[in-house]
Design a protein around this nucleic acid. Structure first.
Lengths: 221, 221
DNA sequence: CCCATAATCTGCCGCATGGTAGAGAGCATC
DNA sequence: GATGCTCTCTACCATGCGGCAGATTATGGG
């Protein structure tokens, strides 16, 4: 065994690098960072471990590059989507829709973000750094919507956080979904989740009649 | 170094076992399954690795036990909470409140559930098995609420899933929250998240637009 | 054609980890 | 006080992993 490994076809560095990143993101997301060996990433990309280490000198460097790549990509995609959608009132939905579309085209990628954000604050901060402009835009958008009365008044940052968890959760917890619903894990299912989440969010944002945020002290009662 | 390890105080098996489980759940949740060594679990519980392997013959067995313990505990807690809350209209909120209270008392535990549900379908199915009765109850409750008009009509299973992701996300994505909000990660923050999520969910559940929004479900007082 | 450089490989090392084998200490029961 | 059981330990092994050294081949410029 161990196939003499007939020297893989040579590739221009940049292409190889991208290929390795892609596999790394996929595997880190699927099996976790510690659960994925460099060997596994390398062979998945059709190359030997040393070739991987040629492009990324350490495993941490590889992770770092994955984080950079994913955050760059998501920022880019979202920005483009926001450019395109001019109607202010539909921007929130455009963001959600875009995220689901990305998840559909590249399912491993949300999983990776999830995993990465578990690996300590530094990693999250890298994400946050790249996405900062988008975050500011989102906050402004929410605040504006609130003062115009289009969105129920509340803490915009916490709202943004809740939205984030709902979206990422809906996308990444597919395993749980199957257990809860018994549903098959197909494109259709993803679309249905998107529709469901959209309605859910729309209702949650709608300015309730008496519901001006207030103190919300009405909890446990 | 290596402290002659002056033979730890003997413990009645059951107590030692529980202690080990507690540490395992904590560390698996914090650093991930593959990211946590048996040695780490053992020394955290003040004992040598071999003692750990005496109680749990393999790492997988340990994981299995952790899953069983957590699911048993969450089922127990939720069931108790539901017994206590008689008002049907407040049951949903009681569940959310209980989950947050558990997360407050035992912060490592939601993290563990998250991690565990990443480790493959078998694990999730174990959870699902134990929580099955609660799931059925929840579905019935939601359906009933819908037919009574107290809850907006929709697919109950998908709704339950969305609720699950929102709750678990709000609890576990603390790191992200800090990055998004800049908030400190204290008790207070957890409470605020609970309040926020409660209002969010209440609004999302409220039946159709057109002003009927605030009926039973909105401000519970 | 030759040489520099880029890209990929083989071979290996040190270390941590999951797991085995088995000894020994506390404690009860006869 | 011998026997047996429960609990904890020391010592060790095999494997897998991250990473180093360096050989080897393709490729493009003089």
């Amino acid at each position: 065994m161990t196939e003499p490994a007939a020297r893989r076809t040579r590739m221009p560095g940049e292409a190889r690098r991208r290929r390795l990143l892609e596999e790394a993101i996929r595997l880190f997301g699927k099996r976790g960072f510690e659960g994925t060996s460099l060997e596994a990433v390398a062979t998945s990309a059709g190359v030997r471990k040393q070739t991987l280490l040629y492009y990324f000198p350490t495993k941490d460097a590889l992770l770092e590059a994955c984080v950079q790549e994913t955050s760059r990509r998501v920022a880019e995609t979202l920005t483009a989507a926001l450019e395109e959608e001019t109607s202010s009132s539909h921007k929130a939905e455009a963001v959600i829709h875009t995220l689901f579309r990305v998840a559909e085209e590249w399912p491993d990628f949300p999983q990776f973000i999830r995993e990465a954000s578990r690996l300590g604050p530094e990693v999250i901060e890298r994400f946050a750094g790249v996405l900062e402009p988008l975050r500011r835009r989102a906050l402004l958008f929410l605040q504006q919507g609130m003062s115009e009365g289009a969105i129920r008044s509340q803490d915009p940052a916490l709202l943004l956080f809740t939205l984030y968890t709902a979206v990422v959760g809906s996308i990444t917890e597919a395993g749980v979904l199957r257990a809860v619903v018994g549903e098959d894990q197909s494109r259709t299912a993803l679309h249905r989740r998107e529709q469901e989440l959209l309605r859910f969010v729309r209702n949650a944002l709608a300015p309730g009649e008496g519901g001006t945020a207030g103190t919300g002290a009405s909890t446990g009662a």
